[in-house]
């Protein structure tokens, strides 16, 4: 029997379980994301948010469960590089980039292009490379800093550079882990705008603690608790859910 949710979804998780030395990080997590959808994931510490991202990006193999991308690709059988090449981008909680290389080179490395060693050694760059880099630097407001070492950027600029790298990757799905941690209020709001812009032509999953930020995104919210989905729906609806209040939002 054809499962409509399966074939039409971009990301399909069903009954995913992961345990570390007896600690069950995920217990039967199920989640579906439609193409073009943006989703916020919230939940207390230890709810399994980061582990879920690890499973989707191939860093952690689930003990059981189904993880499908685009309805056909079985992500549990692929490694990080293969999943990234399929079109899944990931932003870490702590900004990670190539600190000893220039902002420009960071974007160049992320830019969608053949990833094989032979191609990077002998291949010619695509003719529009420069143009694409310029466009992304414009979007993340780092054009003036293109020649600077990534290490010399401020924390907020680093967060943006990483988002810029994700844009350069041009993924079908973006996983963003706490993008506004450590940002000023102004930066937070700018980042929310940036993400909404990105969401126009990408599917995005955002993990975030900051409720104001989630509210600003204005998208469907999934609440995780103890490795499974506790509630799902618009923010106002889930924040009224007594179970969510009990475990997460507080009375």
């Amino acid at each position: 029997m054809e499962n409509l949710a399966l074939t039409q979804s971009l990301l399909y998780l069903d009954g995913v379980a992961v345990s570390f030395d007896g600690y069950k990080a995920l217990r039967g997590l199920s989640l579906t994301l439609a193409p073009g959808e943006m989703r916020a994931i919230i939940g207390p510490n230890g709810a399994g948010k980061t582990t879920m991202m690890d499973v989707i990006t191939g860093k952690t193999r689930p003990d059981e469960g189904v993880v499908l991308f685009g309805g056909t690709e079985d992500l549990t059988q692929l490694d990080e590089a293969a999943i990234a090449q399929l079109g899944v981008g990931r932003k870490f909680q702590k900004p990670t980039m190539f600190e000893s290389q220039s902002v420009e080179d960071n974007i160049l490395l992320a830019l969608k292009a053949p990833r094989e060693a032979r191609a990077t050694l002998f291949g010619k760059p695509a003719p529009d490379t420069r143009e694409r880099i310029d466009r992304i630097l414009e979007t993340i407001k780092l054009t003036a800093h293109r020649k600077r070492m990534a290490a010399d950027l401020s924390h907020g600029q680093k967060q943006w550079l990483e988002i810029g790298m994700l844009l350069a990757q041009d993924p079908k799905l973006l996983l963003v882990d706490e993008p506004v941690a450590g940002m000023t209020d102004a930066e937070t709001m700018q980042t929310a705008d940036l993400l909404r812009e990105i969401a126009r032509d990408h599917s995005v999953v955002v993990v975030e603690h900051d409720m104001d930020f989630v509210r600003k995104l204005g998208v469907k919210v999934t609440v995780l608790h103890e490795g499974a989905v506790l509630a799902e729906g618009p923010l106002d609806q889930v924040s009224a859910d007594p179970r969510v209040i009990e475990v997460y939002l507080g009375r």
Binding site: Q85, M97, S100, L109, Q169
Partner: peptide, 11 residues
């Protein structure tokens, strides 16, 4: 400098 970042970029 950042091995896992390189992996998640698809290298």
């Amino acid at each position: 400098d950042a091995e896992s970042r390189a992996r998640f970029l698809g290298y």
